[in-house]
């Protein structure tokens, strides 16, 4: 497991264990090993590793996971503060005309 960990106690990830059916989809899609299923029900194991990508929420068939998802990118935050449109982020979008955006 990679040891990178960002700020503590800040992510918005929430899990409704009463609603969880233990299907394991959240664990399959999580790229940061945040969740686990110790006994048939999902559990937030390593909260501070969450990057709020939203994959678990999107793939939970019963809506038991909630997170305010987004990209952890300062340039994107600045762009939205300045009211810039386009939402280009994280990659070089060389196919489109709105220039590459690296963030």
């Amino acid at each position: 497991m990679s040891n990178f960990e960002y700020l503590q106690n800040v992510v918005t990830l929430q899990l409704d264990q009463a609603a969880c059916i233990g299907c394991g989809m959240c664990i399959e899609v999580c790229p940061r090993s945040v969740l686990s299923i110790p006994a048939g029900i999902a559990r937030i194991e390593r909260r501070d590793r969450c990057i709020e990508c939203g994959a678990c929420m999107r793939n939970c068939p019963v809506g038991a996971v909630a997170v305010r998802s987004g990209v952890g990118c300062a340039a994107a935050v600045i762009n939205s503060l300045l009211g810039r449109k386009g939402g280009c982020c994280c990659t070089i979008d060389e196919s489109s005309s709105d220039k590459g955006c690296f963030c």
């Binding site: 960990e5 960002y6 800040v10 952890g72 982020c89």
Partner: peptide
């Protein structure tokens, strides 16, 4: 350095907003 948050693979939006 703050701008490198976007290229990294372990930052969250809530975290980035907090540090910003």
């Amino acid at each position: 350095a703050m701008n490198f948050t976007g290229a990294s693979t372990f930052t969250s939006l809530s975290g980035v907003k907090k540090e910003m």
